[in-house]
Simulated scan of single mutants.
Amino acid sequence: MNHKLSEVIQAAVDIDAGDPKRIQHFLKVQSFADYIASREKVPAEPAFLLEVAAILHDIGIHACEEKYHSTAGHYQELEGPPIARSILEEIGGFTDAQIERVLFLISHHHTYDPEQIDGIDYQILIEADFLVNLYEDGATEAAIANAREKVFKTNTGISLIEHMFLAKTH
């Protein structure tokens, strides 16, 4: 694993200390994002920034709970970027453009409008988060089918949602 990624993970673990559900959530989203990006042949730098964003995508949740008594997605999109910026600046070695891309992804990870999805990294982050949330939230078959139709665009993401949720076992 890339040393910077392990530092980002540790920073997120420190912030989410005592909250195993949130730590496991971001690690699962990171893992799916990495897998999808690999299968979709995303170039190294955007794939790396995608993983950073996947680790930090919900980093503002505790701030949202304190400030709004809610974990609603639009609050996460507001509160997460300043915390993520602080983490990335403290770790160092990120360019301004890299930080801005990660913050953009965090500030839009609950925005599913296809016209706003401006890159494969954004699409993959949404798909990875959906895969984890559908499972963790015990989504209905109808909700899963709706997500498959309206959200998933990558071949790998489509294959994953179909294999995980829509395949009939013997």
Score class of each variant (00 low, 15 high):
I120Q: 15
V52E: 13
E65S: 11
L103T: 03
A147Q: 04
P46Q: 11
K4H: 07
T156G: 08
D121A: 14
I59A: 02
A53N: 03
E45R: 13
S70W: 06
M164Y: 10
F130P: 01
V151R: 14
C64D: 14
H170F: 11
R22W: 04
A128Y: 01
R85S: 09
G18T: 04
Q123G: 07
Y35H: 15
A139P: 06
S86Q: 12
N2S: 12
K28I: 06
E136W: 07
I83N: 00
V102P: 06
R39C: 00
I91L: 03
E136T: 11
M1Y: 08
G93R: 08
V52Q: 10
F104H: 11
D96Q: 10
E136Y: 09
V52Y: 07
A97I: 12
K168R: 15
Q10N: 12
V29H: 03
V102I: 12
S107G: 12
L134I: 02
E149M: 10
H57T: 03
P82V: 01
G93C: 07
I36W: 08
A17P: 00
T71Q: 08
Y35Q: 15
V29W: 02
V132F: 08
S31R: 10
G60Y: 05
I23E: 02
F26D: 01
N2I: 09
E115P: 10
V29P: 01
T95Q: 13
T71H: 06
L78A: 11
G60C: 13
T71D: 08
I9S: 11
E162R: 14
E77G: 03
A142M: 13
T111L: 00
Q30T: 01
I117R: 14
L27F: 05
K28E: 10
G73Y: 07
S70C: 04
D118C: 09
T154L: 06
Q76I: 10
A84V: 02
E79I: 03
L131N: 09
L134T: 04
G92R: 05
I36H: 08
P20C: 08
G18F: 02
K153P: 05
E65I: 15
I23M: 06
L88V: 13
H163L: 15
I87Y: 05
S31M: 11
S31G: 13
E141Q: 14
V42C: 10
F152L: 13
V42W: 07
L5E: 08
L103Q: 04
E90C: 05
N146V: 00
I124K: 04
D34P: 00
Q76P: 04
I9Y: 11
A17W: 07
P43Y: 06
D58P: 04
Q10V: 01
E89G: 06
H69N: 15
G92M: 07
E7L: 15
N155T: 11
Y68W: 15
H108Y: 01
Q30I: 03
N133W: 05
Q98Y: 04
Q24H: 15
A37V: 08
A37F: 03
E141M: 13
N155R: 14
F32L: 08
F48N: 03
L88C: 14
T95F: 09
H163P: 05
S6G: 00
A145V: 10
E162Y: 13
A63N: 02
H25R: 14
E100Q: 15
Q116W: 06
T169S: 07
P82S: 10
A54S: 10
A128R: 00
E115Q: 15
V29A: 02
